[in-house]
Design a protein around this nucleic acid. Structure first.
Lengths: 189, 189
DNA sequence: CTTGTATATGCAACTAATTGCATATGAGGA
DNA sequence: TCCTCATATGCAATTAGTTGCATATACAAG
């Protein structure tokens, strides 16, 4: 299961609670893997039971106590084993693309606002990524030589940025196409 | 469930058997949605039971008979309803990206061959897409005006092409980064 | 006449993920 | 006092998806 490995990587970078992990899955880890808090708590429980993780109860002031998880030795071994074994190049699943092809059997122009909504969501995400890159990887915060972890985090973030830029450009192509089809249709009826 | 909708779209474009659908999910529909034949047969059975699809036994020569599915009126209604309701902009799940960040806790250079393997898979897929585009959307095969279905299929294919090109460029960035980190490391130890 | 390949369909068991609740602490504001 | 928000954790039910296996037709190659 890939969620296990994503959790191992995140906890190797920094120990944290289920709640904190859930927030990371909305931010940096979320560039390439998503999970809800329910799923995270369940998997954390199983991983702890399997001895992959250590837990520590951490009392807090002004907020409920938390359980801080960190990677135990067997967890590090499991991560290493996974890193050395190949994974299949994955195909994407993109529901909006299914809709676009399906629009041929309905009113394609009705899809315009939906595509615009998606474009805005991706544009917002791009802005967030670029802000994060500016903050964490430029100027005095730029990774020093040999800071492998930071360099690898940066190249993954660049992947997220490239993905969002590509998606925005494609959605513009989709919008042009939908507008053109609408013009052709109204021009001939 | 999105697989249901992908099946509806595919069968609206052209009726077919479970086997044929499975092959389409390795090809054109596979640009944006994947499914195994087991899953497809199960969902086809359920959809038929729900009255969304019609079946027809088709005897064949030289090969086993097949069941040809086509979209029934309630299926067209279900597709239309789905098209008119918003879907959430999705986040990607990219296992290789998890590995790249995880490589910080192992030997990053060991990942080079894995990344190269992925690069080749994406490069092969790009070639297939471009060949298909050449075959189906240029010259005498170019969609005539008002051929909405073909135009929308093409814009989705362009999305697949853009995705593969972006991914290849990013994997080159990853490879550069891994080579640079290896050089830094050997240069200082 | 056996083996392999392509076509064709499916069940069973399991794992992963989503959806809908449910609960509790403590701060700040109406 | 009550309401909301952010923090914090979780169960139960359901749906979706994967993996392993099983079966059958028919042609072609050896």
């Amino acid at each position: 299961m890939a969620l296990e490995h994503a959790i191992l990587v995140s906890l190797m970078e920094k120990p944290g609670s289920g709640y904190e992990l859930a927030r990371r899955f909305e931010r940096s880890i979320g560039y390439f893997w998503t999970a809800t808090h329910q799923q995270i708590y369940r998997v954390l429980g199983r991983m702890e039971g399997d001895g992959l993780l250590d837990v520590r109860e951490v009392p807090q002031q002004g907020r409920p106590d938390k359980k801080e998880y960190s990677v135990a030795a067997p967890g590090r071994a499991a991560l290493s084993a996974w890193l050395h074994q190949p994974v299949e190049p994955e195909s994407i699943r993109h529901e909006l693309a299914v809709k676009i092809r399906g629009a041929a059997f309905d009113d394609p122009a009705a899809l315009i606002s939906e595509v615009e909504r998606h474009r805005k969501a991706h544009s917002d995400r791009l802005t967030r990524y670029l802000t994060g890159e500016q903050r964490d990887f430029t100027g005095p915060e730029a990774p020093r030589p040999l800071d492998t972890g930071r360099e690898l985090q940066h190249v993954v973030l660049r992947g997220g940025i490239a993905f969002e830029r590509m998606t925005i450009a494609w959605l513009d192509d989709v919008l042009d196409t939908l507008h053109r089809l609408r013009a052709e249709r109204t021009g001939t009826t």
